[in-house]
Design a binder for these strands. Structure first.
Lengths: 170, 170
DNA sequence: GATTTTCCGACCGGCAAGCTAGGATTTGGA
DNA sequence: TCCAAATCCTAGCTTGCCGGTCGGAAAATC
């Protein structure tokens, strides 16, 4: 598996928050309790608590404590990319242990000084990293919310023809 | 980390085999012993043995037993994609636990039947899977061998300008 | 002040990663 | 003929994360 359930659960949590904010009255929506999300997505509540903490640290959600409290999106769904979400939960994304890249895409490989030539595999891992980054950074929470709310019946999403899922801004 | 050292070591092993086959006389080259590869790449020999076994099962390398034995590429380097190599070592590549795709790209998500709508995250994971697959399947061993053998000094590979590493066939 | 929620830290079982060890088997060469 | 070099095979071992539970503190509403 490329990602653990942390990313999976976290994304589903964010989508759920986005959906509820979407369908409620404009302006400030009521915060959504974690318990209701856990129930809706059939996820363990106490585990979600840990995940949402990381999302909060990154400003992706904001919390309201006390009775009738809960969570809200920290930013408009259009401004939240899946790269933000996944990195908040899983830490920096690198294809390999030896591989460190800053957000600007500059790439460092710890094998660089082995012998007199560059790590041959760098070409490969750079491409992989690029592919993942592009997919994650190019997908916003707003997109997923729309996908989930709109005509996304089991039917529509299952038959992938003409590759509609892959349609994505470059 | 997206991939473990299995993929890392395995790719380096394959590149090493490719380089040696490249620089030797045409026709059938002498097999390369694992020990020499392990030494050249400073990798643990006994661990490499396990990895190369998986590569052999998939026909990516061929072995010659006995003294002066070793390994050869199982196919021309041009016909070996990194998807072959990585999948041989790490197993089928899926972004999430719940996610199963056959090689034709049809996608199955085990949450599909939750409630009445499709897993919202499917859109995301499909894109991620596509990105990784494209990067892996679009990179051949021959490319990496050339990258390693040719002008790939530390200098040339470190300064990534104009994004030459990302240049890749669609 | 009682209930509902977020918050925080400790703990825990299971499993895969990343090796190592030891030997059996095959082959070439002295 | 026998030894050395190599592949092959099975077993095991340690460490760290993953996925999750638990208990309780703080905050806010009623």
């Amino acid at each position: 598996m490329l990602f653990s359930t942390k990313a999976e659960y976290g994304v589903r949590l964010m989508v759920e928050l986005g959906r509820r904010a979407d369908s409620s009255a404009p302006g400030e929506a009521e915060p959504v309790s974690l318990g209701s999300v856990a129930e809706a997505e059939t996820l363990p509540l106490s585990y979600l608590e840990h995940l949402v903490a990381k999302l909060r640290e990154q400003g992706l959600v904001r919390s309201v404590r006390g009775a009738h409290g809960g969570y809200r999106l920290g930013k408009p769904a259009e401004e939240i990319t899946m790269l933000d979400v996944v990195e908040a939960l899983e830490g920096p994304i690198a294809p390999m242990e030896c591989f460190h890249a800053d957000r600007e895409g500059r790439v460092l490989c710890s094998h660089e000084t082995d012998g007199d030539r560059a790590c041959a595999t760098k070409l490969l891992w750079t491409r992989v990293q690029g592919g993942v980054n592009k997919a994650l950074a190019g997908t916003t929470l707003a997109e997923l919310v729309e996908f989930a709310s709109a005509g996304a019946t089991v039917e529509a999403a299952t038959k992938v023809e003409g590759d509609p899922l892959a349609a994505q801004p470059a």
